[in-house]
Structure formats: C-alpha cells, structure tokens
Design a protein around this nucleic acid. Structure first.
Lengths: 168, 168
DNA sequence: ATATATTTTCAATAAGTTTTGAAAATTCCA
DNA sequence: TGGAATTTTCAAAACTTATTGAAAATATAT
C-alpha cells in the first residue's frame, strides 16, 4: 500500500473511531494527522491536508491542547505557530483516561452519592430497587475509580506486565 | 430526598452520561428507568414516564436488546410485551465492554493491520513515523484486547479482587 | 507608529441526529 | 375469518452539533 493512501485511511478511520469516544470527528482527524507527522506542522498545513476551515482548525487544536494531547511548539525564526502531538500511545491513553475520569466518572459518582439517602419505607420495593441500583453503581464506580487512578500513575511496562501475568 | 425527585435526577443524568459513551440520550434514559424498576414494564409505561413517542420507545428498546442489556419478558395472561433490564452492574459493564470491543476495537485493529505494510524507504522519516505510530497503536490495542477478553470472562470478585491486590 | 502576518472569535449556516406520529404490519382472540 | 389490540416502520419535522468565513484582536517586523 502507498503511504498517501494509508495516511488517508488512517486519518479517516481514527476520526470515525474518535466519535465513539467522546471526541469529535474533526478533532480526532487532526490528532491522527499530528500522530503521523514526524515534525510539528502549522494551522495552514492542517487546513490544507484535511480541507477544513481556519476557524475549525483553531477550535479543535485548542480542544486537543485542553485534553493534553497536543502542544504548541515555537520554532525559532518562524512567525507561525506549530503543533505537535504526544506520540507515545500509552501516554495518549492514560491522558484520555485521566481527562474522561475527571469530566465524566467523578461527577457521576458525586451525583449518585447525593441520590442515595432516600426518604421512605426501606421495605417498599420501589425504594429498595432504587437504592440497590444506585448503591451497586456507586460501588462499581468507586472500584473503577481506584483502578483508573493507579493506571494513570503507573508506568506501562509495570502495569500491563502485572495485569497480563494474572492471566497466564 | 424524595424518591420521585431522585428517580428523575438519576434518569436525566444517566441519559447525559450515556451520550459520552456512544449510547444515545433516550436509550440511556430508558435503560435507567428499567434499572430502577423492580418489575418489568411496558412500552406505554416507558412512553408515559419519559414523555416520549411510541416509535421512539420501540426503536430504543430494540437497540437496548441488541446491546444485550434488556430483555423482552412475556407475562402469562398479558397481551402486551414487558421489558426488563439486567440489574447486576458488573454484568452490565462487561456486556457493554464486550459489545464495544466487538463494534469498535476489533475493526480498528483489523484496519491497522492492513495499513502497516507500507511501500517505500524505511529510512524516510514520513514512512518511519507512520509505521511507528501504527505499530504502537496496534501493540497497545492488542494488549487492551487481551485484558478485555479476560475481563469479559472473569467474574467480578476474582477480577477486581486481583487487580486491587496489586495496588495494596 | 504603521503595516503586515497570524490567530481568535462568533453569528450564520450547514450537516447530522433524534423524535414524532400516523399508516402498515403483525398478533391474538372469539 | 374478522376485528381489536399491539407493535413496527419510516418520511417529515424538530432539534443538536459542527463548520464556515469574515471581522476583530493580537503579535511581529520595519
């Protein structure tokens, strides 16, 4: 397969993949482009390679920076700003996990803790099912929270090594 | 807090939560309603409690059944169909993981394997960065794939117990 | 200071997705 | 078999989200 074709396919499917993971299509495509670019590239490069507007590039690069996946790079002697992505996939994954945990899991657990103390007869089956469900989700979420925290801090070889050993 | 209010909040935020996880708002709300309903309920119950149309309920319950999260239940003597959700959160989570792995991770890894053999000079930095990136993602994805497979088969107490022991 | 390059913003618009509701299909009973 | 109850389908409408592009803001060079 030719490099040009393979690049186009990778960008397009990384974009589609991203939509399933709370990241919008264009943002994921820009990320894909940066992942396969050996050197930092400019807004104009991104506009041209993905055929999208300047405003769109600007907003999505800003979001990617907010997710901690992309950095602005200043190149001496150059007027324009350049962008570059973290290339280590383990770091990319832990960064995404960290952000999603903060944005989604933590607020959900906080909300559930407010919903658990319900007025009413503990023998009533509606009350019982509600508190059982909320309790079950909280317990599960709390455990997931712990596992993710350690994963975020752990280094790749130690973490995956340990996990995989469990399954031998 | 009153049960009615707590139910409404849970349904609404489970719905919002779902949108971050590739499940649409209404589908997640129906799921939430079923999770807190001690007994199976009908299309009409769902329509009424969530104020949504019959068609909407029909399509989304069908999707939930497709995800393996909800079952049709036949109640002897009743003309209508009833729906009921799996209540064990560990089973819910492993079912979701199983489906998403099948729908997203597996196809992505398959695609990447097609993109790796690139024509051209291995010393060219564009070629090198591309193959390094694809290779890195494949390796990581392959490990994730193994871990998820075991998780899907494992039972809760064994799996989380083992993981948590690692972190003591 | 002024001109020029570059980035940012955001209202308007386009594209995509979800929901409705009524008609068609199906199921069940007498 | 006919008819009532129930479920399913799907085109049109409503809603949501993403994108554009031009004007405003900012940064840099002379």
């Amino acid at each position: 397969m030719k490099l040009t074709e393979a690049k186009a396919q990778f960008i397009s499917s990384w974009g589609a993949f991203g939509t399933h993971w709370g990241i919008n299509r264009t943002m994921a495509q820009i990320h894909a482009l940066l992942l396969i670019s050996p050197d930092p590239i400019t807004q104009d490069d991104i506009m041209e390679q993905l055929s999208i507007s300047r405003g769109n590039v600007n907003m999505n690069t800003r979001d990617l920076i907010g997710w901690g996946l992309v950095d602005r790079v200043l190149i001496p002697g150059e007027r324009k700003e350049f962008f570059s992505a973290e290339k280590d996939i383990w770091k990319v994954a832990t960064q995404i996990i960290k952000e999603r945990k903060k944005r989604e899991l933590d607020p959900m657990l906080k909300l559930l803790s407010q919903l658990e103390p319900i007025e009413g007869d503990k023998k009533d089956k509606d009350v019982k099912q509600f508190t059982d469900t909320i309790g079950g989700i909280r317990k599960f979420g709390g455990q997931a929270d712990k596992v993710l925290d350690v994963m975020i801090k752990a280094d790749e070889s130690w973490f995956l090594g340990s996990i995989l050993k469990l399954f031998k």
